[in-house]
Simulated scan of single mutants.
Amino acid sequence: MGRQDEAIRVADELLADIELKRLKASEIVLKASRVARLVGHTELTEFLGFERNGYPTDGSSTAWIGRAGRWADKEKETFYTQPIAKVEAQVESSQQAIDAMRGGGNYSGDVALLASRDHDTRILQSSVNLSTWAGICGQVVATVYGMVTEIYHELLFSELQASLFASTQKKVDGSLAAASGSALEKIERISDRLRDGDPESVSQALTTCRRLIDSCADYVFPSRDELYKMGDEVDLKVGPQQVLNRLQAHTHVCGASKSRRDRLRRTLSDLYARCSAGTHAEVTIDEARFIFLQTYIALGEILTLSAAPENGDS
């Protein structure tokens, strides 16, 4: 099991533990620490570190004091610094004190009233203490729950993205391989050059990227001398130099909606222009990487178009 799969499993289990009240706050903090370590979540790691070891008074923990419900007096900037395990111990101690004093005492004589009042005062103080410490535990658990829920959903979304990309990549790579025996070889060269990062490599990579568009056009719609009839639309020249026209003609043959064809035409037109600009070293390494990714996706969409006509004009 990979780290991401393990993180998803532990996070899911932890959320259920919290919802079903299966763990104490200190146990939740320890389990959440594993989630934070698996995903490298800096903020959660910092927060849980304070909860395990106690809060320093040097101001470094101020951002978390409120979220953990630890202010004793915010105006005076006093707060409860104890680690969560000691907070839990205070909860148990306060509860035991209240349980011991339940039922009152048998007081008589002149001190009965004073003794009764003292008894009631001690119960009240223990109740206040219990409320304070239990409130911190509850707030800590709520904060952990909110952060782990966010991490859990991000992990699920990332897993979905990875799954979708992997299945799409397999399909696109297969189509590119069919479009040109050297297509995947070109992609490998592009990747190598973009990793180099120097201006000459960027220029060469984008030149190769443009040639990849050319080879795909040659594969899906070889050049013709006659115009391609687009029905009610303007007929297209589809000669050797009309690369984008031939790709547009292919999308028309496949029955793609006009809006989809127009979108692909605009995308490839912009990419083709930027690939050409790349030969003059006008493209940064970061832009070149995005140009390559967008070219790969756009060509993949065109090459995997079904021959069956689409319904509607989505």
Score class of each variant (00 low, 15 high):
residue 267 T to S: 11
residue 188 E to K: 08
residue 169 Q to Y: 13
residue 60 S to Y: 13
residue 70 R to D: 06
residue 274 R to I: 03
residue 166 A to P: 15
residue 2 G to W: 10
residue 62 T to Y: 13
residue 146 G to K: 04
residue 116 S to V: 05
residue 94 S to D: 08
residue 19 E to N: 12
residue 197 G to Q: 11
residue 107 Y to A: 10
residue 160 L to M: 09
residue 49 G to A: 01
residue 178 A to M: 08
residue 265 R to M: 09
residue 114 L to S: 15
residue 194 L to Y: 09
residue 235 D to G: 02
residue 127 S to Y: 03
residue 294 Q to N: 09
residue 144 V to R: 00
residue 246 R to K: 02
residue 308 A to P: 00
residue 175 S to I: 07
residue 98 I to M: 15
residue 286 D to S: 15
residue 249 A to Q: 10
residue 35 V to S: 04
residue 142 A to D: 11
residue 265 R to H: 14
residue 128 V to P: 02
residue 59 G to S: 04
residue 108 S to V: 11
residue 38 L to C: 05
residue 178 A to Q: 11
residue 63 A to G: 11
residue 11 A to N: 04
residue 20 L to E: 15
residue 108 S to F: 15
residue 202 V to N: 08
residue 296 Y to H: 10
residue 153 H to M: 05
residue 99 D to M: 09
residue 151 I to D: 01
residue 209 C to A: 15
residue 312 G to L: 05
residue 48 L to A: 03
residue 145 Y to N: 07
residue 154 E to Q: 03
residue 292 F to Y: 12
residue 16 A to C: 09
residue 62 T to A: 14
residue 86 K to R: 08
residue 293 L to T: 15
residue 93 S to Q: 13
residue 257 S to Q: 04
residue 25 A to H: 05
residue 240 P to H: 07
residue 270 D to G: 06
residue 155 L to S: 01
residue 239 G to I: 00
residue 290 F to L: 15
residue 32 A to D: 03
residue 112 A to P: 15
residue 58 D to Q: 06
residue 290 F to C: 12
residue 24 K to A: 08
residue 238 V to K: 02
residue 267 T to F: 01
residue 87 V to G: 01
residue 147 M to W: 14
residue 270 D to Q: 13
residue 284 T to R: 11
residue 104 G to L: 06
residue 60 S to Q: 11
residue 26 S to E: 11
residue 246 R to D: 03
residue 203 S to F: 03
residue 69 G to Q: 11
residue 110 D to S: 08
residue 96 Q to E: 12
residue 100 A to Y: 09
residue 142 A to I: 00
residue 298 A to Y: 07
residue 249 A to R: 04
residue 313 D to R: 07
residue 9 R to M: 08
residue 187 I to N: 04
residue 16 A to D: 11
residue 113 L to I: 08
